[in-house]
Simulated scan of single mutants.
Amino acid sequence: MSTSANSRNHNARPGYQLHDAIDLLGWEDQSIWGWDEGTSSFFAQLWRNGSSSEAPEIWLTGARKPYPWPGCIALDIVELIEADPLAVVQALGIADPEPALRSEDDIARHADQLTSLNDRSEYIGGQLAALTWTRGQSELTLSTRAPWDQGRPSAARADAEHHLITGRVYLGGDPVHGGSFFNGADEALWWTLGR
């Protein structure tokens, strides 16, 4: 899949008239996603390849749970089928076309500045967790708490994590961390990606 295909929906926002395929290996034959005006939400319908069912195996709809941002859809797909976050972000076409990470030294300096604030809020904790992960010094990903032993993530993988974190922000956090933690992580990843 070309970079342009991975980024065809990069600018998708609420209200964006979108109805597109989900090019995820093993699910790409029939699966779709897009914006539903009726529920003011993104949606996704996923069928495993070879399925003859009329009903999707996974149906993410704003009628059951609001999906106000593309990252919300990406996050739930990752968690429901235990898929690779980068593969899902690329399959939805929402990947940054030219992702870049700040240098490890810049990230370390920023983390040191935050640590010197002596602020123990969840918001700062989320920022520090994101900076630690982007430096390759965390054993878990931020968004799904999946094991991470791959060192410093690539810019494309950090961009995918940012999509999932933004999804967490819009969905209100998770049972371990509240929304404030993910707001901090979202801001730090935004900065780390040079945005």
Rank of each mutant, 00 (worst) to 15 (best):
G178L: 05
S121L: 01
L60A: 06
V169C: 08
D23W: 04
R102I: 02
P175K: 11
A95K: 07
A12N: 11
D96A: 06
R102V: 06
D96R: 10
R102Y: 01
N11M: 00
G178N: 11
Q90A: 08
W47V: 12
N118T: 03
G38R: 15
A95E: 12
A63F: 09
D119N: 12
E79K: 14
A100V: 09
V89P: 12
W148E: 09
N183A: 03
G179P: 14
D112A: 15
T144F: 00
D84M: 04
A74D: 09
T132D: 07
Q137I: 00
R13L: 02
I94F: 03
R8L: 00
D105C: 07
S4T: 05
R168M: 01
Q150N: 10
I22P: 13
S154D: 04
R152Y: 01
E54T: 12
L80T: 15
G173Y: 02
L164N: 09
G50L: 00
L128Q: 13
A156G: 07
G136R: 07
L164D: 10
A160H: 07
G173E: 06
S116M: 10
E187G: 08
F181T: 10
S52A: 07
N183R: 13
G194E: 15
T3N: 06
W133M: 09
G136H: 07
W59S: 14
A55N: 14
A21I: 00
P85Y: 01
E139R: 10
D119P: 06
A130L: 03
Q150T: 04
T141N: 11
N49R: 10
E57I: 10
D96K: 09
H177W: 05
W133Y: 07
E57Q: 15
F181I: 06
P66Y: 00
N11P: 03
P14C: 02
S2E: 11
T115V: 02
L189W: 06
A146P: 02
S138K: 03
E98P: 05
N6H: 00
T192N: 13
T39Y: 05
L92R: 11
R157F: 00
G26M: 03
L164F: 03
Y123T: 14
N9E: 00
Q30A: 12
L75A: 09
F181G: 12
G71R: 09
L86Q: 15
A74P: 10
E161T: 05
W33R: 11
D36C: 13
N6R: 03
P85N: 13
T166D: 08
R13K: 11
E79Q: 15
T61I: 04
C72R: 13
S40D: 11
A5K: 08
